[in-house]
Nucleic acid binder design. Structure first.
Lengths: 238, 238
DNA sequence: CGAACAGTTGATCAGGATCAACTCGAGTGG
DNA sequence: CCACTCGAGTTGATCCTGATCAACTGTTCG
């Protein structure tokens, strides 16, 4: 059960390609099991990586072991698009068993150059990604631990919902409290206590891997969460 | 003297265009004086804005007045490229007197669609911008106040140097301590004390607007600064 | 001359870090 | 089948970085 693999594949912007073009690209997805590095923090790679199923996170580890998690990723995310033009400054690790498509950089570049709608989709998604980074900066710079955690859970829930991975107010988000702490700039001990408080306040139920939002308006309020920055389509914006 | 205007214009990626094409675009730069909003945090705009001379910062203000600064900008920066495709989630304010070129969105979009090298330059610069955001996240999440401040000063110095705005180890960076605090997630009082410590350690001299780096290796060490994430051309990377 | 703002200083407070121990499964190997 | 280990979560005690509050200085500018 641990690290179960989400059933359906999501191709994100690549999904805009004609099936005949998409099929050979995604023909042989690689499996990455829970905890393995999908993209190394070190050396360069010949490919870019599309997460097709499962969950992952981007991170950077400092010399003495401190770690900063920079994003949690869902199916459809291009994990290392930066690698197409620049050296990477982060690694990507699987949060669950994942299905990953490796796309040769030259091939991806060609697709971008040739397909306007694809290019626009990629462009847009990287703008949204930057907006999420800014939102995280606001959180780490100016929000309390409780607001940060609540905000992150709201964000995760909305992003999962946007790719069809929620059922009701539940979603599968298999992080440890240490992952949350490293994403939010907190210690794992404090993260634990704040989560308990959120549970005690009836906002969430969250044990292990399944996030259950018990009081969505309450959680949004606690996190000062406004989903505008995610730039989701109208239909998903609440 | 206050808010002096940097002498030379820098067109950043736009500089790649043929002079005949560039000239009409930048023919009538607008002046934005110190402290005025160049791009509003509220309503949408019909233009995108290129900072051509002077300095500015992007920021977001929360309901109760807390503020997060998201970037400091130098000449050549496109301040609100995001506005081309998405609603903005931040405002931009002038740190000094500025010269700003407003480019109609449709015009900018056309340039991007038609000029490959220009498009690549824009693309690259937005990847670098995202890398800088991530670096700030690492700082706010996992670095001490002293390291954060040292790191930011290193970054500012390097970026200024990359656009030719330094002389030796000096650069003009007219922020208040409150600006620094709001960029780094600190209080202005604490920022003041840490700056004093950096001065006392002989790493910097910084009074008012002129940043002087007295001990570059020392400052880099204090900030755990590695300029790789700025992706500067070889020649400027140290 | 006075207002307004940036910087500075001291005193106190608090949010969250750190250290350490303990519980509770889930695997794993004997 | 059970002892063992290992990772995650939990709890308590204590510490400390950095926040907050408040006063005061100095400068600029109207």
């Amino acid at each position: 059960m641990a690290g179960r693999l989400t059933t359906f594949d999501n191709y994100g912007p690549l999904g805009l390609l004609a099936p005949a073009e998409l099929a050979p690209l995604v023909a042989a997805p690689r499996l990455a099991s829970l905890g393995t590095e999908i993209v190394s923090e070190e050396g360069p790679s010949k490919d870019c990586h599309l997460l097709v199923a499962g969950q992952a996170y981007r991170h950077r580890t400092l010399a003495d072991g401190r770690r900063q998690i920079m994003s949690f990723n869902v199916p459809g995310d291009l994990l290392d698009l930066q690698g197409l033009s620049l050296d990477l400054d982060f690694g990507v690790t699987a949060l669950s068993n994942c299905r990953v498509v490796a796309i040769p950089k030259a091939k991806l570049q060609a697709l971008i150059d040739e397909h306007l709608t694809f290019r626009q989709a990629i462009w847009r998604s990287s703008l949204v990604e930057a907006a999420i980074f800014r939102e995280w900066m606001v959180g780490m710079g100016r929000r309390s631990a409780q607001a940060r955690i609540a905000h992150l859970l709201c964000e995760v829930y909305m992003r999962h919902r946007a790719v069809g991975l929620t059922s009701g107010r539940n979603c599968y988000f298999p992080v440890t409290q240490t992952h949350l702490a490293d994403a939010l700039g907190l210690s794992s001990v404090h993260t634990n206590r704040v989560l308990q408080a959120l549970r005690a306040d009836g906002l969430i139920a969250y044990r292990g891997r399944e996030l259950v939002i018990r009081d969505w308006p309450g959680l949004c309020a606690a996190g000062e969460f406004d989903p505008a920055y995610l730039h989701l389509p109208e239909r998903l914006a609440a």
